[in-house]
């Protein structure tokens, strides 16, 4: 159970990192959207660190740096990466569902749902249509 949440924590660390290069390429409403998304990931990370520490299991820390799937050099690339980050995060939270139950299951569902909603908002911002996928977080 805690392994799945530890994987989710690692994903949240990576998402927070990615919003650095994303944020600097965005302006106006999109930049604000990136700030709010990053804050949501930080808040989820903090909650997970607390929870996993209380349980006494492993609490993965952040890596010093993460390899981005592609270089982000402009606004379009930043929006594309934001979509990708949220899709990957949704996938990790979804994978935690079968490994959890009770309050942890709800936590995992919230993580999946929030990431899926943010992915939809980023697709909208990037002009990607449709803005939704039928099964958020499911491996392609």
């Amino acid at each position: 159970m805690s392994e799945a949440l530890a994987a989710a924590l690692s994903a949240e660390h990576a998402a927070i990192y990615a919003y650095g290069p994303i944020g600097v390429r965005l302006k106006g409403a999109a930049a604000e959207q990136a700030r709010s998304a990053e804050a949501a990931h930080r808040s989820r990370r903090d909650a997970l660190v607390l929870l996993l520490t209380e349980r006494g299991g492993p609490v993965p820390g952040a890596e010093p740096a993460y390899a981005l799937p592609f270089p982000v050099t402009d606004e379009a690339g930043a929006l594309r990466l934001a979509v990708e980050v949220e899709e990957r995060t949704a996938g990790v939270w979804r994978a935690a569902l079968p490994a959890t139950e009770g309050a942890d299951r709800t936590r995992a569902l919230d993580g999946l749902t929030d990431a899926a909603v943010r992915a939809t908002r980023w697709r909208k911002a990037a002009g990607i249509s449709p803005t939704t996928v039928p099964f958020p977080g499911r491996p392609a």
Binding site: P98, E101, L109, L112, V117, T120, R138
Partner: peptide, 26 residues
């Protein structure tokens, strides 16, 4: 339904719940 589902069904039902949340964005 996702919180009540057995492990084998939780991911599918969770994806459906998340998808419906994204539909509200649409």
């Amino acid at each position: 339904a996702c919180t009540e589902a057995p492990a084998s069904r939780s991911a599918l039902v969770g994806s459906i719940a998340a998808a419906r949340a994204t539909h509200l964005e649409v």
